[in-house]
Design a binder for these strands. Sequence first.
DNA 1: GATGAATGAGTCTTCATTCAT
DNA 2: GATGAATGAAGACTCATTCAT
Lengths: 205, 205, 205, 205
Amino acid sequence: MEKQARRAQVLRHAKRIFARKGYHRTNVADIISRARIARGTFYLYFENKKDLFEELLEQVLRELAVRIHRIRIGPGEPEPADQLRANLRRVMSFVLSERDLTNILLSHALGFDPELDERIQTFYDRIAAQIQRSLDLGITMGLVRRCDTRTAAYCILGGVKETIAQLSRQAPPDIDGLVEEILRFGLSGVARPELLETLRNIGEP
Amino acid sequence: MEKQARRAQVLRHAKRIFARKGYHRTNVADIISRARIARGTFYLYFENKKDLFEELLEQVLRELAVRIHRIRIGPGEPEPADQLRANLRRVMSFVLSERDLTNILLSHALGFDPELDERIQTFYDRIAAQIQRSLDLGITMGLVRRCDTRTAAYCILGGVKETIAQLSRQAPPDIDGLVEEILRFGLSGVARPELLETLRNIGEP
Amino acid sequence: MEKQARRAQVLRHAKRIFARKGYHRTNVADIISRARIARGTFYLYFENKKDLFEELLEQVLRELAVRIHRIRIGPGEPEPADQLRANLRRVMSFVLSERDLTNILLSHALGFDPELDERIQTFYDRIAAQIQRSLDLGITMGLVRRCDTRTAAYCILGGVKETIAQLSRQAPPDIDGLVEEILRFGLSGVARPELLETLRNIGEP
Amino acid sequence: MEKQARRAQVLRHAKRIFARKGYHRTNVADIISRARIARGTFYLYFENKKDLFEELLEQVLRELAVRIHRIRIGPGEPEPADQLRANLRRVMSFVLSERDLTNILLSHALGFDPELDERIQTFYDRIAAQIQRSLDLGITMGLVRRCDTRTAAYCILGGVKETIAQLSRQAPPDIDGLVEEILRFGLSGVARPELLETLRNIGEP
DNA sequence: GATGAATGAGTCTTCATTCAT
DNA sequence: GATGAATGAAGACTCATTCAT
């Protein structure tokens, strides 16, 4: 498994450089000098520069997707709000542990290849759709106020993305507190006003 | 001023191409062939390719900044919520009228030059700060519930950005309705629960 | 027409280098240094290295094709043998005046691109077919002995090609004499006419 | 001798690939994957890629040379024409049995290395010289008409080469018939014997 | 002997920018 | 001012060959 290790090594270095300089300002020369391999070795492990970049991108998308669980309703399932909280925590802690990957996704992924743009857009759209479905479900269950859930979904997604962007820029604060703050912001926003009295206590002792 | 007209003409063409293909995939050749000027002429009007791109970027940032007014409290001033609504409307209608510029800002601006990244980040930070100040003010005035206004500000900013991104992708829907939806989402989120009863009527007859 | 002149200049230099070193051992660097142009200038005039090479090749094939006239029978037309002689003379003098081109065709054209190989093969096949048609006509007219005209055609073509190859290698001799020699060989072979009666039966029962 | 067998195996595979794709478009990777040996192993058996190619080339030249016997005059020797016929038959049947080698010689050998070009040229020159000597002898013996034997030799060589090239491209026809056809062409040309009297004066004062 | 991962020199090609006309 | 031919630095990628295991 030496070979895989070497490959992972190159990926690790490339990740860091791509995160700092973006795709276009990163040369293959940069990567190989950091990874201390020869030019040809690079092409032994990766089809080309774009291929490597895409692999990193796929990696973030995959890892993020894994951490976002569908909200489940039913006996034995945690409270929806708790499921949301868990989702956010998983995402946030991943972001913190993989700032470079996050940075690549947020700052350098968009706009350099139509196909890849599509790929990313689809990823976000899927998440937005998932949020929207949860909201629709919440309305049915009487937990969420009536609203344009599509717009609300994008507002929530956007809010999370922006907070994450901040997170990847600055020293990592108290994740749990941050998550609570976002949750409260989001929930109070979409919850049915009549239920606000009840929901207000979510996440508080 | 013939010269200024010519220059504007080039800017207009470049804007469209940059919006579609991004900075790196757009050649000077693309621009000059669209603008029907000679290669050399391009450099009479613009320092270089990057310069032109930055000018477009400055343009969006400027236009957006102009449309975002500081919330003012005082006798004779409109309700804060109405001021928010007006801000959002101005921004949204600008986005709709200048989708290419918006697209450049949202999809192609980040990550190709550290200096420019800084410039854009500062722009967003300034807006976030402005939102945060408004929230802090709202708290003081008893309109906004106590919360981490910094995080809330980024959530609001993110939500608006994401909605705008959607807007620039799809056929323009009912802007006013969209604005109300965002407003309600945001206000219900940050407003003091005790005031929700009152705020709920915002934007409704 | 300055531009065409420059282009022709590059073609001229490239022709010489390709003739001496072949396609693969010739670098773009070789060509541009000989032609005293910058790297980029090369690509201003030619799609790429292969493109330039193919253009030279097309040029030889075209020039040769133009010099090989179809044998015409009819009142007012020269004797067939004279038409053959004229064809050979035109081809031979072209070869002499364009030794580099000839060399490219004979030594470097084959086997570096399937498509091009096809192109060249087709060219030769067309000439062989033309010769064969003339032979068939000659048989009909009682000028040519009965034989496998297809094989005879390839023998004639091969003989001419080989002589040309010699021509392009060595100091140019008396072209007219050479042409006569080839003609006589093609028409009557090497055997002493007096002995043909005997030899004619060779290999036949 | 296991080693020799292995080596021959590689040669066999390489021969086929070189014949199809030529020297430059054939990678060492192609060869080793076909021969199912490791990269390093290749270099145990051959100095380098060129070396292997040259070995194949030497092989054809050697095999061909072996099959071309000098024409011998004397009591107990077969008729010169029969000796010619035997030569042609040996060469032709070798060509048929080793089409790949023939193809390498005819299509891919020339023009990729000056030294090798020289080698091949010398080979052909030697054959041409041999033919020429035979012709000169034939003249002395009164079998061959007076002519420029050098040119005639190249015509004969060329005719044979071209026929062989056809042979290696197409389905193998009746070899013996082909040989007779070539022989007859060489000996008596294409003109009807009855007309030779007239034609003999062609081009002469 | 055999292996195949590693090497890096060698090439082509692109494209923003310049400058003589 | 306008032009567009010319420039050349920069960068991606290939592939024959080596060498440690």
